[in-house]
Design a protein around this nucleic acid. Sequence first.
DNA 1: CGAGAGCTTGAATCCGGTCAAACTATGTGG
DNA 2: CCACATAGTTTGACCGGATTCAAGCTCTCG
Lengths: 257, 257
Amino acid sequence: MHALQSLQALAVSIRCSRGQEICSSSRPAEYWYRVVSGSARRCVIRADGRRQIIDLLLPGDFFGFSERNEYDCDSTVEAVVEGTIVASYLRNRAEMMADTDPQLARELRHVAYKALSRTRAHLLLLGRVTAREKVGAFLLELIERCSGGATDTIKLPISRYDIADCLALSVETVCRSLTELKQRGVIALSGTRCVRIVDRQALEEGDSDSDASFARRKVASFHRGNSSADAKPVGPRAGRQLRHNGQANGFRQLTGT
Amino acid sequence: MHALQSLQALAVSIRCSRGQEICSSSRPAEYWYRVVSGSARRCVIRADGRRQIIDLLLPGDFFGFSERNEYDCDSTVEAVVEGTIVASYLRNRAEMMADTDPQLARELRHVAYKALSRTRAHLLLLGRVTAREKVGAFLLELIERCSGGATDTIKLPISRYDIADCLALSVETVCRSLTELKQRGVIALSGTRCVRIVDRQALEEGDSDSDASFARRKVASFHRGNSSADAKPVGPRAGRQLRHNGQANGFRQLTGT
DNA sequence: CGAGAGCTTGAATCCGGTCAAACTATGTGG
DNA sequence: CCACATAGTTTGACCGGATTCAAGCTCTCG
């Protein structure tokens, strides 16, 4: 984010109207992009017509690399809000530049790592069980990405439909989750797009009752670390697995260690 | 994958026992790794004790980069099978090497892109609706990654529990899905770990009835591409969205175009 | 002011999680 | 070599929660 300045020489700004397609994986990626203002979404349309949003792009986020790979999906990036501005960089030029500027090359690697982190965070979101958990965690992540955790209020950049397609839920379920969170006093809504976090703690757990009782309910039948950990983790800190085994007591306990 | 040869000079092989922790995000990543043989899984343990596998690592896959980032999760990579071999590369050495070898730098970028693609594919998997879809798509992806689509038979490298935690399902549901697929004649099982794809077509859809009737059922109520596409995709190929709108007929049709 | 996108709520259905129990495979110790 | 223990797998019954379908609402923009 610092030595990327050299890249800025190549930047060409594009102003996008709402819903406009910015790039699609159907043609060889000629450009890298960075969201300057507004927001964008990377979408996949399934054979059955459902849409899934696999990446939500906010100001500062890069996208468009990940050159055609084996298991790469047919995704499209669209601007979400009217007047979204993205900077585009001719890929060839950028790569040539990186060839002679090791620092830039490192930064570009870093950019890819950030995209990977973003995608992993998304993956964790989808792995959650209940809809309230998903929506709650999504709000927290969004507020974190938008304001760096500074505030507890956020203007949602996307619609309920987009949220639904982000979380692999139906719109109705997203709505219900939000109203439920509101009624429980976990969040507050001003209009439909403005959310304020009231009880951060409860939002992180997202679980049934909002008071503290983390694990110890919800304890049984899980196949956690142990599920096939039949070798004591030889490495330096074997304590990690155990911590989790300790706090959850269900079946399938660890044998060794 | 070709000019990475120069990197091989740094490689130090490690033999891992079953379940052994290879690296954890709790300490600054000193190494990059590559799976040589066997397999590994990147796991996250949630507060409630559930485990999620966010990356399945097969021979040839790199992991361990994605230096500490903002929204990075506390994950751990473990060997799945006894005798898994991973090559490790001292990160600093590798980066210094890349500084003087632009081709290597490009390859390293490519490695990150591959990890990103892998994670995206996983994201698509989790976004599927039914358990059968998830399991079916998972099998296809696995067979693709293992044999490059050459065969239609695969020896599952991981247990049902691992599959469950990959797909955010319960073990029981994974089992049921597999038996159901078997009974429908979509797959064949030899023992518990060996799967043969019989009806690839049906597996890709994963949907209720196995005969061809893709979209056109399952048509209503979806918020697909159009959901907030109020600007005609100005770009060169606006046909993309339309294709999908055409094949699905539900509400919320596109206004423009 | 009207139209349509976006949002919300309700009712019925169905799928997947949970709990329970049995079965198989594998490996270990007597 | 067999008995036993344990991990891994499978099947069944039940229940809760998410999707689906339906309808009404609000907000915005022309």
